[in-house]
Design a protein around this nucleic acid. Structure first.
Length: 236
DNA sequence: CGCCAGGTTGTTG
DNA sequence: CAACAACATGGC
């Protein structure tokens, strides 16, 4: 009997608790605020999620925080600051996040997008439909499906399920997905769950927690709350 | 030292 | 269109 996505979530949620994603960097440290469940993110917060989502591409979050702190220090953490910044100066502060030339360029493209497509108004996307907003983001050079969906879900509050490397690893081990492409996995989750922003946010957050600490490349099946449900754990 | 980390783009058969 | 290379730093 295969476990369903909702029961997997209940177990992860029971184990890891409320995560209150996406983290916001204040005074050099990450904060996870419960209030984001009740209110919309501000322009500044959405901007921070956009930048963070690009910086964290295939990179650990700790390294991203270094860059965000550095950008704030250098007044590079705003549309205005970034517009005028030479790509080289930006690349230096992006360095700890890896792929620094690429990511500096991606950030520049993001800023150009906000200026031209959104007329400088980040909140403009909130008035669009989910699919329209998604297509817009995917049109930016450097923004692929996971980055776009992170921005949509955590920034704008659209109910979109974010699929990342942890999601693939955990759920393929469980035997609930195969080697499918991004859109396919996303559909599996979105059609298998209640269409709810808070649920999608918390679900993705506990997936990351579980993937980082337990269902790692070398999994710690002895510590896994899903072991009884897991094809991988039961076969090894 | 080698492996891995909250991907995306460009190139090639 | 699938497979593969390139992009790169920091932590363990």
């Amino acid at each position: 009997m295969k476990p369903d996505l909702a029961s997997i979530y209940r177990k992860l949620r029971a184990r890891y608790g409320e995560r209150n994603w996406w983290p916001i960097v204040r005074n050099g440290k990450c904060e996870y605020l419960e209030e984001f469940r009740k209110r919309n993110r501000s322009v500044k917060e959405i901007f921070e999620i956009m930048i963070g989502a690009i910086l964290t591409q295939n990179t650990s979050w700790d390294n991203v925080v270094k860059t965000i702190v550095g950008m704030k220090k250098l007044k590079l953490f705003s549309l205005n600051g970034l517009r005028n910044a030479p790509a080289g100066k930006l690349a230096v502060v992006v360095r700890p996040s890896g792929y620094y030339n690429q990511k500096a360029k991606k950030i520049k493209h993001l800023v150009r997008f906000i200026d031209s497509e959104l007329k400088g108004d980040i909140l403009r996307m909130r008035k669009m439909g989910r699919e329209e907003a998604r297509e817009k983001l995917l049109g930016i050079w450097g923004v692929g499906p996971e980055t776009a969906d992170s921005i949509l879900l955590y920034g704008y509050g659209f109910p979109v399920f974010v699929v990342d490397a942890y999601t693939r690893r955990i759920f393929s081990r469980l035997g609930l997905i195969d080697d499918e492409d991004y859109e396919n996995v996303r559909r599996t989750f979105e059609s298998g769950l209640k269409n709810d922003t808070d649920l999608f946010r918390e679900y993705h957050a506990v997936i990351v927690e579980h993937g980082k600490n337990v269902c790692k490349t070398k999994p710690l099946c002895g510590e896994c709350v899903l072991a009884r449900d897991c094809a991988f754990s039961n076969n090894k």
